[in-house]
């Protein structure tokens, strides 16, 4: 996965731009934001809920992509952080009656700490073994959530019910529209931050560690701390998505956080595009809308279709949708 390095820095790139291929970035931003706002007026509330969910998954997948795609630490257990975030939000809302917006930073911070705690021992493992260990975390999560000793807080098997917040200041929005706006706004913020992070010195160090740890260490990078910090930041972002999901779904229970959730996030990452910032957007849309589609192709085995799509992507489009988009101009020009 060395594709990121094919992009030359902007100063070089401007020299080889072909006429007619340059679009004012401000125009792109305007079009993008208009597209994001469009469903507010056109979509009915269930469709809006699905789009909210897609945005939440996009955030979660972005978190996974930072640690797995950019830093090369394969995690199959990010559903655990998603679950922790969701439970933190649900407990704060239901048991402590705190305002909804306070749950988001709290979930992020707690997940960051948990992520640090998992990222430390994870340093000992690379590649497949890390994947298996994090997968065992994903498998253990529902059992831990059902544990009797913490039932007063987590509600045990029954889970916790929460309600969506109303729009403040008398805004003319219903709960679904408001939540969509909040989610998309947060997603936008997180994506911009992640893009800036990956364009920074730290971001380049993260990729250098993935591509050649020895060389990175020789250049003076503190590999252990950087890898652990990446794990923590990644867990933070995914936990934030989990908190949003608890508010959007209005319910958390151990069975919503089975190991399949972690696998879903992984599939979304691969399909959207590994080590890509915009990839997780497509990943989020994929994991929300394609299972329904797969069910239409074959009623009896949507999971088989899902797995086949994943393998097909790895074989044909290893860069995912984002990789395809990146190559599209070149492919069109060749015609």
């Amino acid at each position: 996965m060395a594709s990121q390095f094919s992009e030359a820095p902007p100063s070089l790139r401007s020299g080889v731009v072909r006429p007619g291929f340059r679009v004012d970035p401000r125009l792109l931003w305007a079009i993008g934001i208009a597209l994001l706002l469009l469903p507010l007026f056109t979509a009915e509330s269930y469709r809006l809920f699905q789009l909210t969910l897609a945005a939440i998954y996009a955030i979660a997948i972005l978190g996974l992509n930072l640690v797995t795609g950019y830093n090369g630490q394969i995690s199959l257990g990010h559903g655990a952080f998603y679950a922790v975030g969701a439970y933190v939000a649900a407990i704060m809302l239901d048991k402590l009656s705190l305002p909804w917006w306070s749950t988001l930073p709290a979930a992020a911070v707690i997940c960051g700490i948990v992520g640090w705690g998992i990222g430390r021992p994870a340093l000992r493992l690379g590649g497949l073994y890390l994947a298996l260990t994090t997968f065992s975390l994903a498998v253990a999560v529902p059992q831990i959530l059902k544990y009797k000793g913490i039932e007063d807080w987590t509600g045990g098997v029954q889970g916790v019910l929460v309600t969506k917040p109303d729009a403040p200041f008398g805004l003319p929005l219903d709960v679904d529209q408001f939540l969509y706006l909040v989610t998309v706004g947060i997603a936008l913020g997180v994506f911009v931050l992640a893009r800036n992070l990956m364009a920074s010195r730290i971001g380049r160090a993260m990729m250098a560690i993935r591509d050649h740890a020895l060389a990175a260490e020789a250049m003076g990078m503190d590999i252990a701390n950087l890898k652990t910090a990446t794990f923590a930041v990644s867990a933070m972002i995914t936990g934030l998505a989990g908190a949003l999901s608890a508010i959007a779904v209005e319910f958390v229970s151990p069975d919503s956080f089975q190991a399949t959730l972690s696998i879903t996030l992984f599939v979304g990452m691969v399909v959207g595009g590994v080590a890509s910032i915009i990839g997780p957007i497509f990943g989020g849309l994929f994991v929300v809308f394609v299972p329904n589609l797969a069910e239409e192709i074959s009623k009896s085995a949507p999971g088989v279709i899902y797995g086949c799509i994943l393998i097909a992507f790895l074989f044909v489009l290893p860069g995912g949708v984002a990789g395809l988009l990146r190559r599209l101009p070149a492919l069109l020009r060749r015609r």
Binding site: L128, F266, G307, L310, I311, P318
Partner: peptide, 19 residues
């Protein structure tokens, strides 16, 4: 291909075979 691709294929296999 990279280890990540292998893990991806394994996960795909898990999904296909179990379902």
């Amino acid at each position: 291909a990279s280890v990540l691709t292998h893990v991806g294929v394994f996960i795909g296999l898990v999904l296909v075979v179990s379902n």
